[in-house]
């Protein structure tokens, strides 16, 4: 039977549950890596060394108010890092992790019998079969890449909503970023080349004609 479903039915609220789990991790103490990160940032926020950094930073630091707002920012950064420190070690290959992997994969796989629907959303029988297949493969310890390769070998590339990086798909993947980079390059080149501004001063003759026109029949 579906593990996901059972989880959902038994826990009173996935959000609540996750939150509790998270908080307990948070208070129990983060892992060394995230702990170090937090300590470094905290040190940066208050240490004299950071002051010297700040003097080199592009932001002009003049006055107590600025400094206070910078410390405020640093504290805010700390706050926002908390969820990560809490979760940095939660990503073990446990049931929850498998569950998340399976769900992410469902979103990438097309239900071959439906109209542009992924198998997560479809309640067709074939989608259920494919979901089960993916679950089994995850349980067997295969990596996401292996599972994707297996699926495309069995059903063809058609089944994957995220096309592979291949020579045939080169344009698909590379054109949007290329056009962005190219566009910026072209824009920079044009603005370099264009030296003279358009002159926004009317010449004598133009002034005279303009006065002439406006004076007419008024």
């Amino acid at each position: 039977m579906n593990r996901k479903r059972q989880d959902r039915v038994t826990s009173p609220s996935p959000f609540m549950g996750r939150g509790d789990h998270l908080r307990s991790r948070w208070w129990a103490g983060p892992t060394p890596v995230s702990q170090c990160l937090t300590v470094v940032i905290a040190a940066l926020a208050v240490s004299p060394a950071h002051r010297s950094l700040r003097s080199r930073s592009p932001l002009p630091m003049n006055g107590e108010g600025e400094r206070r707002s910078m410390s405020l920012l640093a504290v805010l950064f700390l706050l926002l890092l908390l969820p990560f420190t809490a979760h940095a070690d939660a990503a073990h290959a446990d049931a929850a992790h498998d569950e998340a992997r399976a769900k992410a994969l469902y979103r990438e796989v097309r239900c071959v019998a439906c109209q542009s629907q992924d198998i997560a959303d479809s309640d067709a029988a074939i989608a259920a079969d494919m979901r089960r297949e993916i679950r089994e493969e995850i349980a067997q310890g295969r990596s996401d890449a292996e599972i994707r390769a297996g699926l495309s070998a069995r059903y063809g590339d058609y089944v994957l909503f995220r096309p592979r990086f291949s020579l045939g798909n080169l344009l698909l993947w590379s054109l949007p970023p290329l056009i962005l980079v190219g566009g910026i390059a072209v824009f920079v080149a044009i603005s370099r080349r264009r030296g003279a501004a358009r002159d926004y001063v009317l010449s004598e003759a133009e002034e005279a004609r303009l006065r002439d026109i406006l004076k007419n029949d008024r």
Partner: peptide
């Protein structure tokens, strides 16, 4: 600066309430 800070704080609170499993998802 302040707007960014408040946005970060709001996003962090939001992550606390609705966050999921996995570092990448969380990020």
């Amino acid at each position: 600066g302040l707007a960014f800070g408040v946005a970060c704080l709001s996003a962090a609170i939001g992550s606390l309430f609705y966050g999921g499993a996995g570092v990448w998802k969380q990020v």
